[in-house]
Amino acid sequence: MDQLTGKIAIITGANSGIGLEAAKVFADRGAQIIMAVRDTAKGEAARELILNTNNDASINVMKLDLSDLSSVQAFADSYKNQYDSLDLLINNAGVMTPPYSKTKDGFELQFGSNHLGHFALTGHLLPLLKKTRGSRVVSLSSLAHKGATIDFDNLDGTKGYKPMKFYSQSKLANLLFAQELDKRFKQYGLQSLSLACHPGISATNLFKFGKRDAPRLLKTVMHNFLQPPDMGALPTIYAATDPQLTGGEYIGPDGKGQRKGYPTLDTPHASAGDEEVSRKLWEVSEQLTGVKFDFTNAPAQ
């Protein structure tokens, strides 16, 4: 982390939870933070929270709605107009087990936001990642990926929808994307790395009841038994900064069941090891988003 000074990090969903905790740490280490958030008012409040304890923090709040591909495009265009490099892209934001709903583009909300939105964002920002030596993409998966499958015949949920099943599918998609992206970086001789991580079971704003926050008593229980957000952020920070990592790794807590603890190498479930599914997911994601990845330019110098 001593080498973060002057580097630029985009963190999606940086206004709360793991994203906010990672932003605090990166800012403390001298990185310039781009808070890519759906609600810019909440983003500005989070920015002020960090500045209250770190007057020197460099933080910019930019609007990004991952459930709207036009917003993803607009964010990327705006970023590329303002910056000419990108060291860290932290694909962190996510929604968990909402009632059945669709994105602006007609995708099931969890698959559309958690996976397709980040897939499109990464593709749009690929030119800057390629030209920035040592750049990294870190994608947040979850313990929920274990045993999940990608149901290519029902990605939009019109043939039946179970909130947790579709959340698990989206988190498996995040992991498959991270692994496939790293393979392609290496295939084309690029210096960039792609890694996946998960926070264990962390008490964050993902735990909601519909549009309402969890009851106060349940929140107290959650914080007593689950990983607090600052600990839940450690796998993200480790994946983004550890110099020993070579790309393609999956980082999670070292405690029992990988639910709590300090970051270490974890082993993805067998469901994340099917190369045919991984390639098909990539192709389907390009078709659905209309975003094509161009790896062919010269690697970062």
Rank of each mutant, 00 (worst) to 15 (best):
S202F: 04
D254C: 14
Y238T: 04
P243G: 10
K256C: 01
K256Q: 09
R216P: 04
G261S: 10
P243S: 15
M231N: 10
T246G: 01
L218Q: 07
P263I: 06
L217A: 15
G247R: 05
P263C: 05
G210R: 00
G210D: 00
R212H: 03
M231V: 12
P229C: 04
D242K: 07
T204K: 09
K219W: 08
R259N: 07
P228W: 10
Y262P: 00
I237F: 03
L217I: 12
G232M: 03
I237G: 01
A233T: 10
F225K: 11
F225Y: 14
Y262H: 13
A240D: 10
A203K: 05
R216N: 06
K219Y: 02
K260G: 04
G247A: 05
D242V: 02
N205I: 00
H223A: 11
P229H: 02
P263M: 13
N205G: 13
P243M: 14
K219I: 06
F207H: 14
N224Y: 07
T246S: 14
A239D: 03
L206I: 13
K211V: 00
H223Y: 05
L245S: 09
G248N: 06
T241Q: 00
V221F: 15
T246C: 08
R259L: 15
D254I: 12
E249L: 08
G248A: 07
T204A: 07
V221H: 10
P263G: 08
D254Y: 13
D213S: 11
P235T: 08
H223E: 12
S202W: 05
F207R: 09
L226W: 09
K256I: 13
M231P: 00
D230V: 12
Q227M: 14
R212L: 03
D213G: 04
N224Q: 14
L245A: 06
K260R: 15
K208H: 11
T220V: 14
F225R: 09
I237E: 03
